[in-house]
């Protein structure tokens, strides 16, 4: 039992390694961005430790740099990070008995796009796995911010930017095998990508809708279409299984 628990933690830790490596490069550019907006290195690092989110932090630093007010900060963070609420409910469907209320209060902190993506590809999610999974991403996110803030110009850009794409490669590796098994999921995934392209390439939408909000719209609309096009017989099967 103890061994199994340790293995679960270790599996989470291992699964978190790639995310941590990806975060290292993404937060590196956040560190550079924060310092160039007038924050000190420790102010940038503290933001990363306490928030653990990319789009929200970039928006937050922009608000601080523009001396914005607390309401603006609250509403912006709420809208950009609202997708985490959706992910939290989705993840709740996969949690096992070890996910008690105190465990949830702790693990909530590490619900990010990437950690959610990896966690929800598991059969079930427990406290040990989720805790292990969060360690390297938090470490990578914090360290990357520190490195970016302190020595952004030392590493050649070609190295740091090539590391940044790895995290997307990982997403592809999560989604594609599932698409091969389910026709419905492959249809809604293509649809989500097409919608994301609309938000990216229609200038008015790109200028006025934040990336966090665009992701929510694309994902929710596509998933709803998926529910609508799934035959009733298949739905019943999934509910039983």
């Amino acid at each position: 039992m103890v061994l199994q628990k340790r293995m679960t933690f270790n599996k989470g830790f291992k699964d978190g390694l790639i995310i941590g490596a990806g975060y290292l490069s993404v937060s590196f550019s956040f560190g550079i961005m924060a310092v160039s907006n007038g924050l000190t290195w420790w102010q940038a690092v503290l933001i990363s430790i306490l928030n653990l989110t990319s789009a929200g932090q970039v928006a937050g630093v922009e608000i601080m740099a523009g001396l914005g007010g607390p309401i603006e900060m609250m509403v912006t963070q709420f809208v950009i990070n609202m997708r985490y609420s959706l992910m939290a409910i989705s993840l709740s469907q996969k949690t096992d008995k070890s996910m008690t209320v105190p465990a949830r209060i702790v693990n909530s902190y590490v619900i990010t796009d990437e950690i959610f993506g990896v966690a929800s590809s598991q059969e079930s999610v427990g406290f040990k796995y989720m805790t292990g999974l969060g360690i390297m991403p938090v470490a990578g996110w914090t360290l990357g911010t520190l490195l970016g803030a302190v020595m952004g110009n030392i590493l050649p850009a070609v190295v740091t930017t090539s590391l940044a794409i790895g995290i997307y490669g990982m997403f592809v590796a999560i989604v594609l095998p599932v698409c091969r098994k389910s026709k419905t999921i492959s249809i809604i995934c293509i649809m989500a990508v097409l919608l994301a392209c609309v938000f990216r390439y229609v200038p008015f939408l790109y200028a006025h809708i934040s990336s966090g909000f665009a992701i929510i719209i694309c994902a929710v609309v596509s998933a709803l279409v998926g529910v609508f096009i799934t035959p009733a017989s298949e739905l019943k099967e999934e509910a039983d299984g």
Binding site: I165, L195, I215, A223, G226
Partner: peptide, 25 residues
């Protein structure tokens, strides 16, 4: 239930493309 099963994959898809193409220099 199906909705919440689909959400992870549609979120990841929408997050990956086209953003992946702009993630490097």
């Amino acid at each position: 239930k199906a909705f919440f099963e689909y959400i992870p994959y549609t979120v990841l898809s929408a997050m990956t493309f086209p953003a992946m193409l702009y993630s490097t220099g």
